[in-house]
């Protein structure tokens, strides 16, 4: 009996751990905005499952990239090259098939290898050459974007059965009515990109929370010098984190190709900051050491729910979405800082 209550208490205190506060804040704000939308626009279809699934669909490629970005941010680094690498992936697939006749399967594998390689290279430069992450990844950004433009300066649309098949792949949701399975109305489809997004979130959570590698990542973010003194493989872990991020960016590029079915050298411009701000809204601390995949997922959802509300309103300009996102970002950053100073972890000394 006592053991049981003790266990319950520990579970309670585990859930109420202040380190999860940011995730809860994200979830609560998402729910508040969703509830507002449901009350105002519930009659015109805001509460349908389709709208909800669209929150995932709209920004799935940003979400996939945000998985890698969350890890990079937890180590205390930053990666500004993600959007360019994604755009490069699209370009390689498009140019490879449309101009050189290479099957998309090969170009997808090649572009993922390029993403991983570039990521590992940047990680090595950051760790072994001590170049600030900001500068290293900014040059990575320029390089990837520049190679894109070197390959082709115009948008190339892709017409390949495999891409069409992957883009057209969807799971239609059914529900039980009077003992019979019928399609949910309005018809709700889950795309391949959404599946990749959710799988990546789950894999990321497992990697971060349940492996030695994940604990190393948190340790490096908490204090790199302490991690080094403890004998943790700091260099290897950092290079691996940037390589994983490169993988995620390339995967995000593939997801983006499935959405737009084309490669363009200017695709996803400014996307890197969308990805970073999704992770920040999701409660990842930029000084490193704190962050959860599930928070990042809600950060991505929050970035889709605001434009959705503006869409449903119908009269507001899309610019308001950006201003609202900015205000939200401000709110989160200030809350984060208050939480950090409240829990006495004065890490953000600078």
């Amino acid at each position: 009996m006592s053991e049981k209550s003790g266990k319950r208490l520990s579970l309670f205190s585990r859930i109420m751990n202040p380190k999860y506060i940011m995730v809860y804040a994200t979830v609560i704000i998402f729910l508040i905005i969703y509830a507002y939308g449901a009350i105002r626009y519930g009659s015109i279809g805001f509460t349908t499952l389709r709208t909800f699934v669209n929150f995932f669909t709209d920004n799935a490629y940003y979400g996939i990239s945000a998985v890698g970005m969350t890890m990079v941010l937890i180590t205390g680094g930053i990666d500004l090259s993600v959007a360019s690498v994604a755009s490069l992936t699209g370009m390689i697939i498009a140019y490879g098939y449309e101009r050189m006749g290479i099957s998309p399967v090969i170009t997808m594998i090649v572009s993922i290898l390029i993403g991983v390689g570039l990521g590992a290279l940047m990680g090595a430069a950051i760790h072994y050459l001590n170049v600030p992450p900001f500068i290293t990844t900014l040059t990575g950004n320029f390089l990837a974007r520049g190679i894109c433009s070197l390959i082709s300066r115009e948008s190339i649309s892709i017409n390949h059965p495999l891409i069409d098949a992957l883009a057209g792949f969807k799971i239609t949701l059914y529900h039980m009515v009077d003992g019979e399975w019928v399609k949910i109305k309005p018809i709700t489809n889950i795309n391949l990109t959404v599946i990749i997004f959710i799988v990546m979130i789950i894999l990321g959570t497992i990697l971060l929370q349940h492996t030695r590698f994940g604990r190393n990542v948190y340790a490096i973010g908490g204090s790199e010098s302490s991690a080094k003194l403890m004998g943790l493989p700091v260099g290897k872990t950092k290079v691996a984190v940037y390589a994983i991020n490169g993988f995620c960016s390339a995967l995000a590029g593939i997801a983006y190709v499935l959405v737009v079915k084309s490669g363009w050298n200017m695709a996803l411009q400014g996307g890197e900051l969308e990805v970073i701000s999704s992770a920040v809204i999701g409660g990842t601390l930029l000084t490193g050491g704190v962050g959860y995949m599930i928070g990042t997922m809600f950060g991505v959802l929050l970035k889709s729910v605001i434009p959705a509300i503006i869409n449903f309103n119908g009269t507001l300009s899309s610019w308001w979405g950006k201003i609202a996102t900015g205000a939200l970002l401000l709110l989160f950053i200030v809350i984060q800082q208050l939480v950090v100073s409240y829990t006495g972890k004065k890490k953000a000394g600078r």
Binding site: V280, W319, K322, V334
Partner: peptide, 27 residues
């Protein structure tokens, strides 16, 4: 103020205006 008083990393503090500054200019 965000940087000096709230002690937020400059890059993040300025990310806010980076993402919505041009919208304000439009406004």
């Amino acid at each position: 103020t965000l940087v000096a008083v709230f002690r937020i990393q400059p890059m993040i503090a300025t990310l806010i205006l980076y993402s919505c500054g041009r919208s304000i200019a439009y406004w």
